[in-house]
């Protein structure tokens, strides 16, 4: 199915915005402005972007510890994100959550997850909720290859499958869970194969190719909306940086890193778009400039915002 030019540009813009945001996060972390741990999404932008492009504002996503890209793609506000990372009172979570705990229910972002794999059954519950409330909302649940070995993967996907819930389980297989490669943590090549165990389609997709992700998730969303149940989509991708900022990542072979750097999702898509005259050099520069400005404003907002007062520690335990 042909995709409208405006949509293609949106996809490109989203990927660039995520990249520029994450690059700046990395810098600000190194400069000591972000007190807590951050896991950036550089290299994996095509996955969140291609997948979330199918969602409405009131559809849901369940994110991970590597969640900034998901949130940007879902329409999260960069200034509130950056302020949260800076632990400021104006941040998404009033400075109480940090990088791994941002939620924004107004845009269907159910939360990032500091406990690997914990989001899977919660996403099943969001799907159940849509079913019981009689809406056509879908939920995309992001998780990593590491998370696919947590027991909740089994319980959560099985439950969604038996009830044919409108949930897309999107495994971002970046080949590493911190220093553990999938070659030693999985006895199979493709996590998607596990779909068989739950009687659902398991689809492998090139996670560096935003249009491939877009297509595969599009089919999964259609299936979900038709009441046919979940799909397990496995996007093969790579994180370009260490597991967390500050991790030198020396456990990964140089050749492997280079191989994946050569398949940068933004470069791949830019080439596709410029080759077909969908995108001009001028637009490329403009999109980049706008993204940099948006990020710069977010940083300025974060820097100028006040810290929470110590006593605010005591608020927000109970509703």
């Amino acid at each position: 199915m042909p995709v409208a030019k405006e949509k293609l540009l949106d996809l490109y813009r989203t990927m660039v915005r995520i990249r520029r945001f994450e690059e700046r996060v990395s810098e600000e972390f190194a400069a000591g402005n972000i007190p807590g741990s951050v896991h950036v999404y550089i290299g994996e932008e095509a996955v969140a972007t291609g997948a979330i492009a199918h969602l409405r504002k009131d559809d849901y996503i369940m994110s991970t510890h590597r969640g900034h890209g998901h949130l940007v793609a879902k329409g999260g506000k960069m200034n509130l994100m950056m302020a949260e990372l800076f632990a400021k009172q104006t941040g998404y979570c009033l400075g109480k959550g940090g990088s791994m705990h941002i939620a924004d229910l107004d845009i269907g972002m159910l939360g990032a997850a500091g406990i690997v794999g914990s989001g899977i059954p919660i996403a099943t519950g969001a799907g159940l909720s849509a079913r019981i409330r009689g809406t056509d909302q879908v939920t995309i649940c992001f998780f990593g290859d590491g998370a696919s070995n947590i027991g909740r993967f089994h319980e959560g996907i099985n439950m969604a499958s038996i009830w044919k819930l409108p949930v897309i389980f999107l495994c971002e297989n970046n080949l590493w869970a911190v220093s553990v490669p999938t070659s030693t943590s999985l006895a199979i090549q493709d996590i998607a194969d596990r779909g068989v165990a739950y009687g659902i389609p398991g689809v492998v997709v090139d996670g560096q190719d935003v249009m491939a992700v877009y297509e595969a998730v599009g089919e999964a969303v259609t299936r979900a909306k038709k009441g046919e149940g979940p799909t397990l989509v496995e996007a093969k991708t790579y994180r370009y940086r260490g597991h967390f900022e500050g991790d030198a990542g020396t456990y990964r072979p140089r050749e492997e890193i280079e191989k994946w750097l050569a398949r940068d999702p933004i470069n791949i898509f830019r080439e596709q778009l410029t080759k077909t005259q969908m995108l001009t050099e001028k637009q490329v520069a403009e999109i980049d400039k706008e993204a940099l400005e948006e990020v710069a404003k977010a940083v300025q907002f974060a820097k100028e915002s006040p810290f929470p007062k110590p006593e605010e520690t005591l608020d927000n335990v109970y509703a």
Binding site: L110, P121, I122
Partner: peptide, 28 residues
């Protein structure tokens, strides 16, 4: 069965799904 929902033996998913439902407008 829609609102009195028998589950598999999956305590984590029972509570996880209940959480997902609770934060999206239901009272499990």
């Amino acid at each position: 069965a829609e609102k009195v929902r028998d589950t598999p033996l999956s305590e984590a998913a029972i509570l996880g799904a209940a959480i997902g439902a609770a934060i999206t407008g239901l009272r499990p």
